[in-house]
Computed example of a mutant assay.
Amino acid sequence: MIISLCDSPQDVADLAAQRVADLLHDTPRAVLGLPTGRTPIRMYEELATRASDGEVDFSQATSFNLDEFVGIGVSHPGSYRAYMKGHLFDRVGITEARGHVLDGLAADPDAECARFEEAIEAAGGIDLMILGLGANGHIGFNEPDATLQARTHRVTLLEPSRKANAEFFDGDPSRVPAEAMTMGMGTILKARRILLLVTGSSKAATVAALITGPVTTQLPASFLQLHADVELICDTEAAAQIR
Rank of each mutant, 00 (worst) to 15 (best):
15 L>C: 10
228 A>N: 14
212 T>L: 12
8 S>T: 15
181 M>T: 03
165 N>K: 02
179 E>R: 06
117 E>W: 03
28 P>F: 06
95 T>C: 11
165 N>C: 09
16 A>I: 09
108 D>Q: 10
19 R>W: 05
158 L>R: 12
75 S>H: 12
125 G>H: 04
119 A>T: 07
226 L>K: 14
95 T>D: 14
120 I>E: 02
22 D>I: 00
25 H>N: 10
190 K>C: 05
198 V>I: 08
156 T>S: 15
147 T>I: 08
124 G>A: 07
168 F>L: 13
228 A>W: 07
45 E>I: 00
139 I>E: 06
41 I>P: 01
154 R>L: 14
114 A>K: 12
90 D>M: 03
100 H>D: 13
94 I>T: 11
231 E>C: 09
235 D>C: 12
48 A>C: 06
6 C>L: 15
60 Q>V: 05
99 G>D: 10
101 V>H: 04
66 L>M: 11
217 T>A: 14
39 T>M: 08
150 A>Y: 01
68 E>S: 04
28 P>M: 12
161 S>G: 11
37 G>M: 11
213 G>S: 09
49 T>A: 15
165 N>S: 12
3 I>D: 10
63 S>Q: 08
78 G>K: 02
79 S>C: 10
159 E>C: 09
58 F>G: 03
89 F>G: 03
51 A>P: 01
166 A>T: 08
88 L>S: 02
195 L>D: 04
52 S>R: 14
188 I>S: 00
37 G>C: 13
223 F>Y: 15
14 D>R: 12
195 L>C: 04
154 R>C: 09
29 R>M: 12
70 V>E: 07
134 G>V: 01
140 G>W: 00
9 P>S: 10
154 R>F: 06
70 V>P: 00
47 L>N: 05
202 S>M: 13
191 A>M: 04
110 D>Y: 07
83 Y>K: 09
160 P>I: 04
23 L>M: 10
201 S>A: 15
156 T>W: 10
76 H>D: 15
132 G>S: 09
23 L>R: 11
199 T>W: 03
170 D>P: 02
113 C>A: 15
218 Q>L: 13
208 A>G: 13
186 G>T: 00
93 G>N: 10
31 V>E: 08
162 R>S: 13
77 P>R: 10
236 T>R: 15
50 R>A: 15
143 E>A: 03
44 Y>H: 05
191 A>C: 07
166 A>K: 08
203 K>E: 10
112 E>P: 01
22 D>R: 14
151 R>V: 08
216 T>I: 02
74 V>W: 08
135 A>V: 13
21 A>Y: 00
201 S>F: 08
41 I>G: 05
78 G>T: 09
5 L>I: 12
49 T>K: 15
33 G>M: 04
76 H>R: 06
219 L>D: 06
100 H>T: 12
195 L>Y: 10
181 M>D: 02
175 R>F: 05
141 F>S: 04
204 A>C: 09
50 R>E: 06
8 S>P: 05
133 L>T: 00
220 P>F: 05
98 R>M: 08
92 V>Y: 09
98 R>G: 06
192 R>G: 13
26 D>G: 05
120 I>Q: 01
116 F>D: 03
172 D>I: 09
134 G>F: 02
86 G>A: 14
85 K>M: 12
96 E>G: 11
63 S>V: 00
186 G>D: 04
